[in-house]
Design a protein around this nucleic acid. Sequence first.
DNA 1: TTGTATGCGTTATCAT
DNA 2: ATGATAACGCATACAA
Lengths: 348, 348
Amino acid sequence: MAKNVTLKDVARHAEVSYQTVSKVIRGQMQVTPEVRARIDAAIDALGYRPNSAAQSLRLQASHLLGYSWQQDRQNQISPILQQFQHSMVECAEDLGYHILLFPQRPNKDLYSTYAALVETRRVDGFILSSIEYDDPRLPIIDRLKVPAVCFGRSSEDMSLPYVDIDGRAGIAEAVRHLIAEGHQRIAILAWPETSRVGTERLNGYWDAMAGANLPVDAAWVIRGAGESDYGYVAASQLLALPHDRRPTAIVTLLDIIAVGVMRAIADQGLQVGRDVAVTGFDDMPAVHYIKPGVTTLRQPVWEVGQLVIDMLVGLLKGEPLAHQHVLLPPELIVRESSQREALAQPNQ
Amino acid sequence: MAKNVTLKDVARHAEVSYQTVSKVIRGQMQVTPEVRARIDAAIDALGYRPNSAAQSLRLQASHLLGYSWQQDRQNQISPILQQFQHSMVECAEDLGYHILLFPQRPNKDLYSTYAALVETRRVDGFILSSIEYDDPRLPIIDRLKVPAVCFGRSSEDMSLPYVDIDGRAGIAEAVRHLIAEGHQRIAILAWPETSRVGTERLNGYWDAMAGANLPVDAAWVIRGAGESDYGYVAASQLLALPHDRRPTAIVTLLDIIAVGVMRAIADQGLQVGRDVAVTGFDDMPAVHYIKPGVTTLRQPVWEVGQLVIDMLVGLLKGEPLAHQHVLLPPELIVRESSQREALAQPNQ
DNA sequence: TTGTATGCGTTATCAT
DNA sequence: ATGATAACGCATACAA
């Protein structure tokens, strides 16, 4: 490691006082072009960089943002959160901030985890993702009075600023697309009531069905958890309904679940798209190789990450937020799985 | 945000000098139990936590470790790297460190990215993952003379400390397993020669085949890139060989590729496991739902993360490394795809 | 055992 | 326009 080059070294080299250098560097002072050039040359020659610890101490700001993510049962991070992390990191750097990762131990006191980071002044604020009902982190953030912005919301009137995907609007659009394709008996594989995201999306289904004055058979709304297996089992159940009640389209809340549904349809000797339409959610790269292609809803995650950081940094600078809560609509991507006219695909 | 509680506040409350508090806190001083109790009470009452910026400035150490990851073409992080990140974060916290994320912009000067972090003293060291041949980061780290430990290696005799998975040993074990299952004509879908990891794993294949004195038909060793599609195409090619040259087992370097291979086998009217054995790599959760189950090699990623951090922190403390280079063997997980006796599975 | 003095590198307030 | 002085909070060599 090279020796520290300090402000004083630069000042000595440029033959000015170090306070002058400090001010000139950040444009708080006008000097003669000649002096300015001497200082720039000195900085360049010595390779000076301000010491971030000293800056943090002086400015009472670490320029670090704490982020802790959640894995699902399979120890996996959703592609959504991966991209979210990436976009945050880039946007933060553009604003002079960095992301600090910290663990979320299952058996450790959550409060002390956050408190330690705040009280040691290690981070200036937090980003929270995967917010659910009664999220234990929310009261903690509130109690610590630390700036924070969430990706996701626990309810409409959350006190914390958040950016979220409008899953309700997304599913509604998917259902309207299916209706436009001529479907009337549309089923949905929802999530348990404890899932905020799932409930939100299910509402989109009700919206669209009601908007088109289509009746909903109680059997068409299934709640469950799991991945491909959930889709397979639930779809098999739907396809076993009497013909006049059997849905011709099945909406799912996740691409992987849609894959299970498609397998169930094929196993019944039916053809996905032509006989039964299917839609997913997330546009997961992992299912891109599935044939037929899965109609899905792509979340604008990149924008979410940028917005979350923008908002948090704004908060830290004391700027009032333009929007306390932002809802971004997902984009419907139509592929073969929801089209009757799609070309037949040889392999499943 | 609550007001700062400093050492002096604690000292005033405990009626001692603040230097005494400082020393007592970190056990550098013996005091009467009575004084000790007063100090503890004060810390507790005021909720004192040492200011990390002040500590960093004083100790010339940020206790931050820089980590930047790489995404694949599909903007995805491999499950391996996800788990790696997680294990690092937990282990780092146990040692009083945190992970700082920084972006790897494709078109930005790589050197300045690292230099900025080092010269501002923002991080004490780096963790590098996804090392390949001629990795541009290696000379940078070398030039900056900053402590760093890698997950992965570009060559055997790398100057930087590293922890890596012994892919060669892993593939060799998989091949020996296939041989034990009675296979003799074993093919492998390798990666391009530019892939260090791929070359390494391919060597394991040669090791095992040579070790069993089995001849290798040149047509059995295919090099290519891609995911499921690569597996499908390459396997179709292998299965089109004359019967006496057609492999009865196909080794792949990735579970997803194995899935493509299995589809090709099924499309030929053959049965995976009984007619042609298949093995993958990584034990990816995403393919857990595939039937028949994919025999694969699970990487001990958690251990890698722990080791990498242990080594880097040791380096920062000036401790000599017990092992400069560590190679961890993957674990063979045998499932139906490589067993002739496996129960027949109804759905693909 | 306890307290004093100094510096880590920066920013900011005041003089000049 | 420039420079002396203080302060941010902590750790430590040294003196008492």
